[in-house]
Design a protein around this nucleic acid. Sequence first.
DNA 1: TCAAAAGTGTTATCCTTACACCCATGT
DNA 2: ACATGGGTGTAAGGATAACACTTTTGA
Lengths: 327, 327
Amino acid sequence: MADISSAVEVGLSAAIVTIHKNNPVILCADYELSDVLSLPYGRFDPLKHRTLEAGLRLWVEAQTALRLGYVEQLYTFGDRGRAKSTAPAGDTHVISVGYLALTRFDAEQNNDGWRYWYDFLPWEDWRNGKPALIDTLILPALREWAQGDKRSSPAYDLHLLPRLTRLRLAFGTDGIQWDEERVLERYELLYEAGLVREATIDGTVSATPQLEELQRHTGRAMVFDHRRILATAIARLRAKLKYRPVIFEIMPDCFTLTALQETVEAISGRHLHKQNFRRLVENAELVEPTGASLSQLRGRPAALYRFRRAVLEERPAPGLRVTLSQR
Amino acid sequence: MADISSAVEVGLSAAIVTIHKNNPVILCADYELSDVLSLPYGRFDPLKHRTLEAGLRLWVEAQTALRLGYVEQLYTFGDRGRAKSTAPAGDTHVISVGYLALTRFDAEQNNDGWRYWYDFLPWEDWRNGKPALIDTLILPALREWAQGDKRSSPAYDLHLLPRLTRLRLAFGTDGIQWDEERVLERYELLYEAGLVREATIDGTVSATPQLEELQRHTGRAMVFDHRRILATAIARLRAKLKYRPVIFEIMPDCFTLTALQETVEAISGRHLHKQNFRRLVENAELVEPTGASLSQLRGRPAALYRFRRAVLEERPAPGLRVTLSQR
DNA sequence: TCAAAAGTGTTATCCTTACACCCATGT
DNA sequence: ACATGGGTGTAAGGATAACACTTTTGA
């Protein structure tokens, strides 16, 4: 019955997200002696952990002295380091459960280990317009990669679409517009095309000098599939902002509307239209004024608001259905 | 390093969905000698299966002679049979990865094993108005259960909300309206309150004659957490319909618009407004006429349509953002 | 007084929602 | 001819997306 061959180790990893100076940051750890970083992770132990999420919380608290608030399961990957074939025969098999966790930035604490998430996925930050590397590096390389694919008829499963179609949908070329939620699709394309370092580390694609040169510009690598988990986390968080008030897990208790907008912009990687954003927040009744106001260095002081928790009890799906301005 | 205590078995289960005579059906298997059904399932074996999904496909094909098309991962549960504490000490630990799979109904094949999904979750079918059992049985029992909870302030994580709030949000009482996507929340409430048989099977709640009487009316039980996986599958599918054209994984190649509408209604468990549904389908350009038409038993023959696969290459998020009419 | 940031008002447009009516066929 | 289901036109209301302008403060 319980033959040993079907026993597997379950790894738990979390992308722990907060905001620091208008930039989303994730908590990272060093991985042994290598130069690549990892997410906080650990092994699920059914004897010690009541549930998967409980196990994750214990690991994170042990490794980071950080108490997690909001936690959400993302996805379970069966091919952690994807190069199954190259693994030593007796190696243990690991499946990997990825989580998203949100927390408030605490200036008091030991703040080592936080890294800007756009350092890992630089093409995702459109706050100052389209990142140049998309047109100069990524699209030419992906177009060349897509040449090697002659299929044309679309199938149901998106992963069976021809490469060129996937490219158009993921990166918004040929009249299709950029969808900030397709973070994972973009990363997977880059991985398959060998344009991120993990692809050659895993041995999925064989290294060439040209590829390695490109990889130097496509963001920082991570251990195992951790960058894929990060991409999944960003995608989920960007989507979730629109229908659940999760942004307030990251915001301090008191904040200005501009700070709220900048946080949403930082996460979604896009500019928002000021007036529409404010109207949205207003008639979603997500916040209430505290009465206080905050003097910036210059300019008119801004009114301070707090999250109106009661929306959780009132509305079916309260969120910031932000309408992205074109800019 | 690889201490035996952290080795776990990974179970794969799938809710395989299709439509039969305007009712959603899922494929079930008998479970050993018991009277409760199970979903098709098997164990993930890293030596035989390249990925989790590949493992699932192999198991399903072995057990059902059915080829899966669309497959999507739902969730990984760490507490399969949730009564950890009552399990024998030496028992193997299983975590369970749930999948949603869609397929077309094939009248040619051996069609044993298909069951109406509303047999398992009868409160989810609102096509003929609100199911009576909600008001006669479920709400009174849940209200009584919610009495035993005195917390009042809402917290961020929905599971930390007071019971009464969760009840209002899940079942749409007190001015909040029914949200057909909250299938899992509803099932979890019923489980926690001991109103489904699994709760007493697992030992989470101790059985009383009153509870057992109620459980006879809250749908058919399943093995382990399979009914929870089914609830997750329904929730995901109902949500997905609105932004991806997955409905066409279930429809035959040619169909009338009425048949399409009835299928969407069957899955979402609600009535849709005919004209609006048609306009929606039309200006989403999801279908194209085949030219042929179909003579029903009575009435005007209906034009036949097929899925316009090209939408997959054109639109960012093609789906049936169905606007639910009140009726 | 001027720069800088906060904070409004208003409109054109599109989408949603609901109404009621006409059409083609079999019996 | 009439019952039955298929199929359309159109108008009210609301949400969205963009416009440009006023207000309040610190230096």
